[in-house]
């Protein structure tokens, strides 16, 4: 019977392939699953680093996007259910740490062995026709009319929203927070004058800043930045108390399951380090105003644990967490 022969051959081939997994890693293409949609910051940075990494690996790394759920939970659940053999990676960013408390899945970040490419620092800017020339002026105006000045940022619980909240806490100002479905529409709204204040990352804003459509006031990180010859001061200079709440920085990168064998992790770390050191990645990070991180393993795990605790408890305090972080054993931020 032809069917039977085909069947027998198929099973033989499948078993050989299963056996092949035990050989040197990697022996077949690696599948990277980005949990955010195509074309976004996480997607682009991952496509770049993974493309550079495959130069140092004998196989290809295919990037796909598996979106949905909350905090990228659909993509993360998928990778979590795959065998821990290093052939499936998850492309993640700091925002995935909310998946647990928002009821997306019942795991914590410690199931991952992350690699952090870096992130772009957040800054606060105003529309070009807004009257305020410095953060101090803006804070003063906001204090005079609490909750009146409209500030745009991506949806509640996002990193930019958390930066805005920290800014309010550190300066005592209160804004009327208008949420948007992502940074891009929030920035467009600031350009059109729908909101006067905007908090997004430097990478996302740089083109609009250079076009003069937005006016930068202050970086929400300890050090200032120079953009096209113009200095953007740090918000910490005028409001030192901010250092208690900030910085909250992006952590864009990817992760392999922590349960993966050590040699797999070692191979990935080696390829990742080489890719991070490459000219192409360094140039790209610089041109797009990213701060390179390059952390992997324990350092990266620690960073994600810190972000997880911060995001989870902030959401909980805002009443927007559907799961109590305590039930997931997430420690309070110190």
């Amino acid at each position: 019977m032809r069917a039977k022969t085909t069947l027998a051959l198929g099973i033989a081939a499948a078993l050989t392939a299963t056996g092949a997994i035990a050989q040197d890693y990697p022996s077949r293409d690696i599948n990277a699953v980005v949990v955010w949609s195509a074309g976004g910051g996480t997607d682009t940075a991952n496509r770049l680093i993974l493309a550079e990494m495959q130069e140092n690996l004998p196989v290809r790394i295919n990037v796909t996007n598996r979106t949905g759920g909350v905090g990228g939970s659909v993509g993360m659940s998928y990778v979590f259910e795959q065998p821990a053999d290093g052939y499936t990676l998850a492309g993640i960013s700091e925002s995935v740490v909310t998946a647990g408390v928002q009821g997306g899945w019942d795991q914590r970040m410690d199931v991952w062995y992350p690699f952090i490419i870096g992130g772009s620092p957040d800054l606060v800017s105003v529309s070009s026709d807004a009257p305020w020339q410095s953060l101090a002026e803006l804070v003063e105006a906001a204090k005079a009319t609490p909750g009146e000045i409209r500030a745009g940022a991506s949806a509640a619980g996002s990193i930019h929203h958390l930066n805005l909240l920290a800014l309010e806490k550190g300066t005592g100002a209160t804004f009327n927070y208008i949420p948007y479905d992502g940074s891009a529409p929030a920035q467009n709204a600031a350009v059109a004058g729908e909101v006067q204040v905007i908090v997004t990352s430097l990478a996302e804003q740089q083109q609009l800043l250079q076009a003069g459509r937005l006016r930068p006031l202050a970086m929400l990180v300890p050090s200032g930045v120079e953009l096209n010859g113009e200095a953007i001061p740090s918000a910490f200079d005028s409001f030192p108390e901010l250092s208690e709440h900030l910085p909250i920085k992006q952590a864009i990168g990817f992760a392999v399951l922590d349960a993966a064998p050590d040699d797999v992790k070692a191979t990935l770390v080696e390829a990742f380090d080489a890719a991070m050191a490459s000219d192409k990645v360094q140039t790209w990070l610089g041109e797009n105003y990213y701060e390179a991180s390059g952390a992997s393993g324990d350092a990266a795990k620690e960073e994600f644990a810190r972000l997880e605790s911060l995001f989870a408890w902030t959401l909980h305090d805002l009443g927007a967490a559907s799961v109590d972080p305590a039930t997931l054993d997430i420690p309070k931020p110190n």
């Binding site: 081939a13 499948a14 050989t16 392939a17 299963t18 077949r28 295919n62 796909t64």
Partner: peptide, 16 residues
Amino acid sequence: LVPLPREGLVVVALET
């Protein structure tokens, strides 16, 4: 390069 919903016997054979 679109992964299939479940990659079992035949897909693994094809991969080989």
